[in-house]
Design a binder for these strands. Structure first.
Lengths: 269, 269
DNA sequence: CTTTTCAAACACAAGACATGTTCGTTACGA
DNA sequence: TCGTAACGAACATGTCTTGTGTTTGAAAAG
């Protein structure tokens, strides 16, 4: 009887479940326990085993997990960044609010450098059709803006895209950045704190972020509350390099205060 | 009565009409007579006036024509290249066969430069997943190959995309080409003849093609029969720069012979 | 001010997509 | 080597998106 109740609850709960939601649920379950079997996941999500297998194939192709016969195990190491495809569906509201605030800070006619990351991708969507010149550092943002001409001018940097992420890195990217100057950079940082400064998950990424900062007059960082006070692997520079930080209400007050102390203007969207 | 016959013929004829087909038909009609009214086009295509208006808006956004109240007029000057969105749906079979032949000429492990154009886009589709390193010079091809990792290595050149076309040009593109060397280039030429050499519609494009040729050991030109013997505006170089030409059966025999005389190997797909 | 053209709103049909089921094939363990 | 479990392909079903046509009110041209 209780079983039935739970079951019907799931059914109702799952009415609005998108396949992206199910993917997140599966990825979370696999990450938490290290591995999971197909029947387990089918029970958890209420979907059939065939659907779970298809999902696992998709997630394996995204590099989220590794298939084995009967289930899947996690590939994510502790402290590593979850793949782009999953992050894109997390904290949607916060990202969207932050992106809207960032877009408001951009004036028409400006030249803008757009970093990689999910929040910056949202900014790209809002910049679509605006009278600005944009050089995005991710394939996704380039694609988003590719049909925005002639109002929006798109400049493509060279580089090698990181798998899954779409972030452009490498010598070609650095050369493109070195050859140009911009009014404003939108930086999507992985970690930001007054004590540890701006940090990125990846060394190549950190090099690109350094070059971004060197090529622009004004640096705007877009980071939801979870990024504040966090420290990632690769050091980019002190937090004072960031002129303006746009974050959301989940940001820790003491960290915000410390950043403001260090000279960064903080806007809570 | 004859009217009815014609009408029913159109109805039958239009059964399989895609909206791309209708777009081509409309663009052709507008180009041929310089301008056309909405009711005219509705009669011609068998679609409603509302659909025609939507089509005209789409085509106007693509730069094919210019709207005016009640109809549209052509924007294409004599001898100018029709826009990408239309070319993409012309001579599909020939393009596909040519692309297949070109893809067969590429060996695994090669580094490949991929020019812009519709035929090269088809080559990109066939290269997807192959164990090659590709640097495409169009946004569309980049997008096509963006999820081909890790088997296929994608390198993105810098540059500014030409509106509609997606072809990357400008100093950033030339710099990217100058910094790298490739085994094979797939050149999509606008005009090719033994007498006039390789020609492009656009000056910037011609500069890029020159740089492409300078950066590669082997140049393969992909051009359907209509391009042979034709001359476009901007000169790229003599036909002898092209080591191999892949074309289709519609190619004029004397032009093929002349190109072979000049040192180009010709493959008819 | 009248007529024509347009665009937004709604309705409808066709196709695409996601999901579940069945069944034959493959891989692992006893 | 055999038996069982897992898998993938093929098909069926329901839902959702997309394209198209119709209607109606608004805007523009004369």
């Amino acid at each position: 009887m209780f079983e039935q109740l739970v079951c019907s609850f799931w059914m109702v709960f799952n009415r609005g479940m998108n396949n992206a939601d199910r993917h997140r649920l599966i990825a979370q379950a696999v990450k938490d326990s290290g591995s999971a079997t197909v029947p387990d996941l089918a029970g958890l999500t209420g979907a059939s085993e065939m659907t779970i297998r298809r999902d696992l194939d998709t997630l394996a192709a995204q590099g989220v997990l590794e298939r084995f016969r009967g289930g899947a195990r996690t590939l994510l190491l502790r402290g590593q960044e979850p793949p782009f495809a999953l992050r894109a569906h997390e904290a949607l509201d916060a990202k969207r609010r932050i992106a809207a605030e960032v877009a408001r800070l951009i004036a028409d006619g400006e030249t803008v450098l757009l970093d990689s990351g999910t929040t910056c991708l949202d900014v790209a969507r809002l910049l679509h059709g605006r009278a600005v010149t944009v050089m995005p550092l991710s394939l996704q943002a380039i694609h988003t803006l590719s049909d925005a001409a002639p109002a929006t001018t798109l400049v493509v940097p060279g580089g090698r895209p990181r798998s899954g992420e779409g972030a452009l890195t490498g010598p070609l990217t650095l050369a493109s950045l070195a050859a140009l100057r911009f009014d404003t950079a939108i930086l999507g940082c992985c970690g930001l704190s007054a004590a540890e400064g701006v940090t990125a998950y990846d060394l190549d990424d950190a090099a690109v972020k350094k070059a971004i900062i060197a090529s622009t007059r004004r640096v705007i960082a877009a980071a939801d509350g979870s990024k504040l006070g966090r420290t990632a692997h690769a050091y980019v520079g002190p937090s004072s390099l960031v002129h303006t930080l746009v974050t959301d209400t989940s940001a820790a007050a003491e960290e915000v205060a410390a950043l403001e102390q260090a000279g960064t203007a903080v806007i809570t969207a």
